[in-house]
Design a protein around this nucleic acid. Sequence first.
DNA 1: TTGACGTC
Length: 735
Amino acid sequence: MEKEKLEGIVESIIFTNEQNGYTVFDLSADNALITAVGYIPGLAVGESVSLTGEWTSNSAYGEQFKVEYFERLTPKEEGAILLYLSSGIVKGVRESTAKKIVDVFGSDTLKIISENPKRLAEIKGISLEKAMQIHDSYINKQSVQNTVMYLQPYGVSAEFALKAHQELGSNAVEIIKDNPYILCDKIAGISFETADKIAKAMSISPLHKGRIKSGIQYVLMQCSVSLGHTYLPENELISYTSHLLGIDEFDVENQITALLSEKQLYGFDTYEGGKDYQLALFTKAEKSIADKLLSLRKVPSEKEKESLNKCIKDSEEKSGIQLSEEQKSAVKQAVFGGVTVITGGPGTGKTTIIRTIIDCLSSLDKKFSLAAPTGRAAKHMSDSCGIEAKTIHRLLEIGYLSDGGRPGFARDVDNPIEADFVIVDEVSMVDTLLMYSLLSAVAPGCGLILLGDSDQLPSVGAGSVLKDIILCDMIKCVKLTHIYRQAAESMIVLNAHKINNGEMPILNKSDNDFFFMSRTSSSQIADTILQLCSGRLSKTYGFDPMTDIQVLTPIKKSILGVYNLNSMLQEVLNPPSINKAEHRFGDSVLREGDKVMQMENNYNASWVKGDLNGTGVYNGDIGVVKKMNSHSRTILIHFDDGREVTYDFAEVRELSLAYAVTVHKGQGSEFECIVMPVFKCAPLLMTRNLFYTAVTRAKSLVVLVGDYDAIGYMVKNNSEQKRYSGLVDRLTENQ
DNA sequence: TTGACGTC
């Protein structure tokens, strides 16, 4: 996006969050009234500001200018100064006082307030005490401004500069000059590179202690982000850090010791006699997860288990599905075992078990909440259980905390989830920090049921929580192995097992359901996928390209990414026509008849479903573009559960074409037919888990298109097992 | 390189 610069006068303040300075206001610039949003604390009507940022469109409020950097132009002439002081921006000064001061000091007013405040007391009605109070209030406002202005040239946006000022106080600039690294240590969102840039500009020594300490923590953080580690072995930490900072390993070791005594870092002895080092954040998270899981455990009594026999029987009659002994015992354990993990591959009956558990909990009059890590997985859970499931973030009520405005969860230790049971699906995608937040919000005594398949996609964030819980052998895990799906003898299931064992799948056996088409270039792969989806598969198998066939790909960008495949698929599956209205926005087009997915939560959108109506469309909802109206600038979307929602053209950015989706979004859903490009992309994504997940989304047909060697690479790449995580040790120590 | 989230 192109950065734009605007200058103008603040016309009115629409909203201010006093805690964090987030402000919504109208600005008159170039004879137009503009709504702008951004972090500008204490902004007042009448102020002149210069804003840098970009245009955004907000679903509920339309076009808005999002401010990243700002400059307040200090008012120079008397009228402007009077307006400025009258706005209430300086504590202790209202309109009448402002007028008195400006009458006396004219255009020197602000200079007097900041440099020679005693002179204010010359004015009748202003005591010396009040004069000093006015001075302090004005200087404090200036210090916010100074911090923002000092940090902006280094690429720190107003939002983060403000956080720095809040954290460091009115001497922020002095403190930063003394040790710029305090910025990346204390303010989430300011990077080590930014702090290092400021330090370089000030010629701070590369051996500055603050620099080395921050470097160590930065390396640990980077390794968690890019590799999923929650700690690093000593030798790796020292060598990466000394490399990054261009200093001696010995100097790094010294500061590790310092960080340990400051409790910023924790050390753990390894079995081999070495040391592992972990950021305090992850130590706390892993310790809490372990403590909570262990404390939730209960051993169900025989009497309790028997008491469920009738509920289970009723549930079986209702669904017409007979549960095996293995499944019945899983249900009993889940209902009375405090905390239970249920794992199993596709077709092993997890959905049947969740439904039965829900029936039992309902008949016991228990309150329960359902959740999953991605929007699409939550949607799938809702559909298969007939009860609303939320993303974990939504269950925890993500929002802005009152203390400083960082995003945070409203549900926590002090305000736990109001339920007797919390049931979470697709737990393999839950990372350490999210699990920590989730478990913190689970009240003592609340039942916890975790379901997942540890062979499927791991979390994007650090840790391998589900694998660790299974591995530690301290929490009751029910492992479902029997495959109930009618396709038990199909090649899809057989190949899924082969992939899991690191073997090549069997391809192209005649009369079967697992095919590979060799294509060398990206454009050949894309062309073949288009042919398959637009005709070949529906001719041969009778699949409906809109509902039965799903293209899954690992990435979003490049020729074989979601964006491009979607626009190519749109061309063949729903081509332009004079009968179909369309709407262009950004690089994309939406046309009547298109298959779309809602990509973010919109709590305000209202829907209609027959006689019913309500509000809210959520990330992962899938639908079809029914009608477009270029006069009212609206689009009607028909969602697959029957809800109809009218989108304003400005809201259309929340939608994306859904002919192709990422494998990550596909986890949790099933489709008749999967078409997947197999090609060399980012090695971190070319994993066995990803390939296994994609393949097992298919109920009756898998078609792989591309490079045979890429399949081999994915099958062999089980890099996810190489994540360093301390959770197993926390779960098993002291037991 | 994948996911989640948002104050008028």
